[in-house]
Computed example of a mutant assay.
Amino acid sequence: MKWFYKYFVNGLIVIVPIALTAVVVVNIFAFTELLLGQYLPIHFPGLALAVVLCLIVFIGWLSSHWISKKLIGYCEQVVGSIPVVKFIYNSVKQISTAVFESQKLLENAVLVPYPHPGVKTLGFVMPELSAPLAAQFSEDHVCVFIPMSLNLTSGFNILIPRRDIIPLDVTSESALQYVITAGAIMPRCNDSNN
């Protein structure tokens, strides 16, 4: 029965994020369609999609201006003063930021000695260590994310001395392909001709 449990859990890991994403997207569009149907005399297929895309771009544009940043900062302070809501909002915001900036985060491919010396594993350099973490080390350390093969959504974050990192001159796409295909596709040089 262990195989049944293993495959059941693996199936859930694949299906749940897809299902949640589909539910959120469908509900956003259904809600938008409902509002547009009530307040606009004109209706055509794809109107909700166009409105949602325009709204997202408009909010992104607003958030990049000084006055809007102040307003958003004030709203975040208000939300941050509510105990349970603060935890939920901060968690969702951090996850969203990580997901939408993951393309930038997984740019710097490196080799590191992991899981033990003498072995090298491909990983990606993460942002600089925060002051409380950096203060724990006598020399410069770096956070490296080591993704699991076939599944970029899980892996390990290790803190390793900068001197032990071997930078790779490979494209981020090919490094990701290497991980996703469990080494079937080898990383390619940054030079597009190679």
Rank of each mutant, 00 (worst) to 15 (best):
K2A: 10
R162E: 12
I67E: 08
E139G: 13
I165S: 06
H116S: 15
P117I: 08
I18C: 05
V170G: 03
V99W: 05
Q177V: 05
Q177F: 08
Q136N: 12
S81Y: 04
I95Y: 07
L133T: 14
F29W: 04
K86A: 07
F8D: 03
M126W: 12
I82K: 00
V57H: 00
N90Y: 09
V23G: 02
M126P: 10
P187V: 05
I72K: 11
L20M: 11
S172E: 02
P17N: 00
I165L: 07
I67G: 11
K104W: 12
N190K: 11
L168P: 09
V9F: 13
L111W: 05
V142G: 10
I82H: 01
L71V: 08
V24N: 00
W3R: 05
I28Y: 03
G60P: 11
V84Q: 03
A135R: 10
V92E: 04
Y5C: 07
T21Y: 02
V52R: 01
P45H: 06
K86L: 01
D191N: 12
Y5I: 12
H141G: 11
V125S: 11
L152N: 02
L122K: 00
R163I: 13
E33C: 00
H141T: 09
T97D: 11
Y7Q: 08
V57F: 11
S63K: 09
I56V: 11
Y39H: 14
S81Q: 13
Y7K: 06
L159I: 15
A109L: 07
P41K: 15
F124M: 12
S192M: 10
A19Q: 02
N27L: 14
T171I: 10
K70D: 04
A175L: 07
N90D: 15
L34S: 15
N193D: 08
Q103E: 13
G37C: 03
A131Y: 14
E101P: 05
W3G: 09
F145E: 07
K120I: 14
E139K: 09
Q77R: 10
L168I: 05
L111Q: 08
N157Y: 15
A48N: 01
K2D: 10
V16W: 00
T21V: 11
